[in-house]
Amino acid sequence: MRSALKLFADKGFAGTTVGDIEGDAGLAVRGGGFYRHFQSKEGVLTAAIDNQIREIEQGQAAVLGLLPLGDLRSELTLVCRWLLTAIEKQRDLLRVVERDGDRFPELRDRCRVHLVDASHLAAVAFTTGWATETSHPSSDPEASAAIMIGAVFNYCHTRWTYGQPPLGVDEDRFVTSWVNYCYDLMTGTSSG
């Protein structure tokens, strides 16, 4: 699955042959090994997407299961670091969706629902839960979630696309600023 996803990301679905996948996975090219596991290229793509969704959901549950930590900045730092790691793990999948999503709308929509929407909904739950717990008003949690998740995604995507982070901001600086921004957003204060 890993080999197929990487090749689909690099060469496109149509540009990747079963022989390419077999060779990259260490199987004998055209030796039938692929078909012992999958019926088609679409079958391996579906399995790879399902696997990514399962891994991300498990990781998200594990991180959110650590909360609350009792300190909002620590919680935000944990969430941001996990998001950076999770998005990085999805790089090939996201490239496939960007390139071939129109060809496989059902798979594209499954990725949107289980990866993108789920992340945004978790951010909404996080911010509204914190607001309820502390009696701080939550101003438009859906839009706030879009900004929070979007900033992390953009940071990762810019690194992939251009080979460097936006304006050369390293990951530690990004995390610190993201945490400060989210903290201010959630508390209605300004930390500078």
Rank of each mutant, 00 (worst) to 15 (best):
T134H: 14
K41H: 11
E142T: 14
D92W: 01
T128Q: 07
L94H: 14
D50G: 08
P137E: 13
W130I: 10
E98R: 14
N180Q: 10
H120R: 14
L94P: 05
I147D: 13
S138K: 01
R110N: 10
L64E: 12
G65C: 13
T85W: 07
S138W: 04
V96N: 02
I87F: 09
A131K: 03
A143V: 11
P165A: 12
R103W: 01
I56A: 03
E142R: 14
T127F: 10
A122I: 00
T85I: 04
L72T: 11
A151L: 13
N51M: 12
D50H: 08
P105H: 04
D170W: 01
L94S: 15
G101V: 01
T134Y: 05
T176C: 03
T176M: 07
L121K: 07
I56L: 00
A86V: 14
G163L: 06
V79F: 10
S139Y: 11
V152K: 06
L84V: 02
H120N: 13
W82P: 00
L94W: 12
A151W: 04
S144Q: 14
L69D: 10
A122S: 09
I147R: 11
A86M: 13
I147A: 13
W130P: 06
V97D: 00
R99I: 00
D50F: 05
E106M: 03
N180R: 11
V116Q: 11
W82S: 03
E55Q: 15
R54A: 15
L72C: 09
G150V: 07
E133L: 14
D102W: 08
C111E: 14
A123K: 05
T158M: 10
R54W: 03
A125C: 08
W160E: 08
M148W: 15
